Amino acid sequence: MHTISIIGAGNLGSALARVAAAGGARVQVVARDIAKARQLAEQVGGEGVQFGSPLIGEIVFLAVPYAALSEVISTYGEQLEGMTVVDVTNPVDFDTFDSLAVASDSSAARELQQALPDASVVKAFNTNFAATLVSGEVGGVPATVVIAGDDADAKARVSEVVTAGGIAVADAGSLKRARELEALGFLQIVLAVREEVTWAGGFAVRS
């Protein structure tokens, strides 16, 4: 059984907690709002703690906005050494809503890996809206989490948590592919904001 820590108790953090708990993982929810962290943890049979408290998971999901990654790094950088760190962010420039807020040859996941050289960063869940993880489907197609990373063992650990929770996984390859995943996530968000798709829809993967 895996033990995971989820930093963030918003919509996606809540969906991740439910998927992980459904697969038998022990879940720690970490959030600034301790009441919200404890409420979500109670719902999934886990533990809720305030941001800044020690992490207990060997896999850590960063279910926070891209802009919050720097604070996560400054707060938990040493604790994340040697751990599997799952980046679920989409680095959208919300000022212009017209581009990704990273260099054209980089990604949020690549920046995170550079900031945490002793951790194994895996990109995952950024192309999934929370509602599709809860329902397990996208427009009648089973939901799939697309992952990318340079550490095969780390990807395998993340895949075990996801598939145990009843969601399929597709491996996109190395962490270089995070750039394409973030572009896809950005496009999906744009379509939802423009009401071309619902927040319970989006892109699906067929095998």
Rank of each mutant, 00 (worst) to 15 (best):
E71K: 08
V19T: 14
G173L: 03
E137I: 05
D105H: 12
W199T: 13
A168K: 08
Y66I: 03
R194E: 15
S99D: 12
L116S: 09
G23A: 10
S74T: 14
V146T: 08
T3F: 05
D153C: 06
V145K: 03
I73V: 15
T75N: 08
V197D: 09
D98S: 15
Q43N: 13
V158Y: 00
F97V: 04
T96N: 01
I7C: 11
A63N: 13
L191G: 05
V122C: 10
E111L: 15
L62Y: 10
N128M: 03
A130F: 06
N11F: 07
V60N: 09
V102F: 06
D105C: 05
D153E: 15
V169T: 00
S159P: 02
G57Q: 03
T132K: 04
L175H: 10
N126T: 06
A63Q: 11
F94M: 14
V49L: 07
L191Q: 13
I7P: 10
S135P: 04
K36H: 09
I56D: 13
G77Y: 13
A170Y: 13
V169I: 03
G185C: 11
Q114R: 14
M1E: 12
I73Q: 09
A200C: 06
R32V: 05
I59L: 12
G10K: 07
A154H: 07
P54Y: 13
R18G: 05
A115Y: 03
L116E: 09
D93A: 01
E180L: 13
F94D: 12
S174N: 07
D151S: 15
I34K: 15
V197R: 02
G149H: 05
E195S: 14
Q114N: 09
S106W: 01
T3D: 11
G149R: 11
Q188R: 01
L181W: 04
A168L: 03
S53Q: 15
D87T: 07
K36D: 09
V162F: 01
I167M: 01
Q188C: 09
A115D: 10
I34Y: 06
D95Q: 11
A103P: 07
S159Y: 08
V162A: 04
S135Y: 02
V19D: 09
T163F: 00
G23Q: 05
G166C: 04
L175Y: 05
G77S: 11
S107D: 02
V205I: 14
V141P: 06
A192Q: 09
A130T: 09
V27C: 06
V193W: 04
G8D: 03
K36F: 09
D95V: 12
G48S: 08
G165S: 02
